[in-house]
């Protein structure tokens, strides 16, 4: 569940113009936002649970280094939410528990 967002947009910036879905719930976002930024703006601070202990995590670095922001985007798992820009109608789901990580990592 989101708590009320503690972040606000600067008043003179562009308006939130699109809608994405997070765990099935509509979230307003601004074109150009990354998925992680849009979720933080809306007060969603927990975007996955860990494979080992199942505890909640949220975006940490916003620059592609920490992989804490892994989410499922339009059915594709393990996408870095801080590196993908939102699109109107995009479906985002929290990753929970064991990851089926993309090939290639040791």
């Amino acid at each position: 569940m989101p708590s009320a967002s503690t972040f606000a947009r600067l008043p003179d910036g562009p308006a939130e113009d699109i809608t994405i879905l997070f765990n099935g719930e509509a979230v307003r976002a601004r074109s150009g936002d990354t998925v992680a930024a849009a979720l933080i703006a809306a007060g969603h601070r927990i975007t996955r649970t860990t494979p080992v202990s199942g505890t909640g995590r949220g975006p940490y670095c916003m620059m592609g280094a920490c992989f804490e922001c892994l989410v499922e985007i339009d059915g594709e798992p393990n996408r870095q939410g801080c590196m993908v820009q939102v699109r109107d109608g995009m479906r985002i789901d929290a990753m929970s528990g064991a990851r089926k990580l993309a090939e290639g990592n040791p």
Binding site: R30, A41, M63
Partner: peptide, 11 residues
């Protein structure tokens, strides 16, 4: 990064 790219400011 949230400030520069999304204009987000903690209140």
């Amino acid at each position: 990064i949230l400030l520069k790219t999304a204009g987000l400011v903690p209140q």
